[in-house]
Amino acid sequence: ERVRARYDYEAQNEDELSFKKGDIITVLEKDDGWWKGRNGKEGLFPSNYVEELE
Rank of each mutant, 00 (worst) to 15 (best):
Ala11Ile: 02
Tyr7Gly: 06
Glu42Pro: 06
Leu28Phe: 08
Arg6Val: 14
Pro46Tyr: 06
Leu53Phe: 13
Asp31Ser: 15
Ala5Ser: 04
Trp35Phe: 08
Arg38Trp: 15
Thr26Gly: 05
Glu14Lys: 11
Leu53Ser: 06
Gly33Ala: 12
Arg4His: 05
Pro46Leu: 09
Asp8His: 06
Val27Trp: 02
Gly40Trp: 12
Ser18Gln: 04
Pro46Phe: 05
Val3Glu: 03
Arg38Leu: 09
Tyr9Arg: 06
Asp15Phe: 15
Arg38Lys: 11
Glu1Asn: 14
Val3Gly: 04
Tyr49Cys: 13
Glu14Ile: 11
Asn48Ser: 15
Phe19Asn: 01
Glu42Cys: 09
Glu29Thr: 11
Arg6His: 05
Phe19Pro: 00
Ile25Ser: 00
Asn13Asp: 08
Tyr9Gly: 03
Glu14Phe: 09
Ile25Lys: 02
Lys41Ile: 08
Lys36Phe: 15
Trp35Asn: 01
Glu54Cys: 13
Arg4Ile: 12
Lys41Cys: 08
Leu28Trp: 05
Glu14Val: 11
Gly22Phe: 04
Glu16Gln: 14
Glu52Trp: 11
Tyr49Pro: 02
Asp15Tyr: 15
Lys41Val: 10
Phe45Val: 04
Glu51Arg: 04
Asp32Ala: 10
Glu16Phe: 07
Gly40Pro: 04
Gly40Ser: 09
Lys30Tyr: 07
Gly22Ser: 05
Phe45Thr: 03
Lys30Trp: 07
Pro46Ile: 03
Ile25Met: 05
Arg38Cys: 10
Pro46Lys: 07
Lys21Ile: 11
Asp32His: 11
Asp32Phe: 09
Thr26Asp: 09
Asn39Asp: 05
Glu1Gly: 12
Ala5Ile: 00
Asp32Cys: 13
Glu52Lys: 12
Gly40Gln: 10
Asp32Pro: 08
Tyr49Asp: 02
Glu42Asp: 10
Gly40Leu: 09
Val50Pro: 02
Glu29Trp: 15
Ser18Glu: 04
Arg4Thr: 07
Asp8Ser: 10
Arg4Trp: 05
Ala11Asp: 01
Asp23Trp: 06
Lys41Trp: 08
Arg6Tyr: 04
Ile24Asn: 02
Pro46Trp: 07
Asp8Cys: 09
Arg38Tyr: 15
Glu29Tyr: 12
Arg2Tyr: 14
Leu44Lys: 12
Asn39Met: 15
Ser47Ala: 14
Trp34Gly: 04
Ile25Asn: 04
Lys21Met: 11
Val50Gln: 02
Lys36Trp: 13
Asn48Phe: 12
Val3Thr: 05
Glu42Phe: 08
Leu44Glu: 03
Glu16Trp: 03
Phe45Ile: 05
Trp34Leu: 07
Ala5Cys: 08
Glu10Leu: 12
Ser18Met: 03
Lys20His: 09
Gly22Leu: 04
Asp8Arg: 01
Glu14Pro: 15
Val50Trp: 03
Lys36Leu: 15
Glu10Phe: 12
Leu53Asp: 07
Leu28Asn: 02
Glu16Val: 00
Arg6Lys: 15
Glu51Cys: 09
Glu10Gly: 06
Gly40Glu: 11
Ala5Phe: 00
Gly22Glu: 03
Lys21Tyr: 06
Ala11Phe: 03
Val50Asp: 01
Thr26Val: 14
Asp8Thr: 08
Phe45Asp: 01
Lys20Arg: 13
Asp15Ile: 10
Asp23Cys: 06
Val3Cys: 11
Gly43Lys: 01
Glu14Cys: 09
Gln12Tyr: 05
Leu17Phe: 04
Asp23Met: 07
Phe45Lys: 01
Arg6Gln: 08
Ala11Glu: 05
Ser18His: 04
Lys20Ile: 07
Glu42Val: 15
Lys41His: 11
Val27His: 01
Asp31Glu: 14
Trp34Gln: 06
Gly40His: 12
Arg4Asn: 04
Glu54Phe: 13
Ser18Trp: 02
Gly40Met: 09
Asp32Thr: 11
Arg6Phe: 06
Glu42Arg: 05
Arg38Ser: 11
Trp34Thr: 05
Glu54Thr: 14
Gly37Met: 01
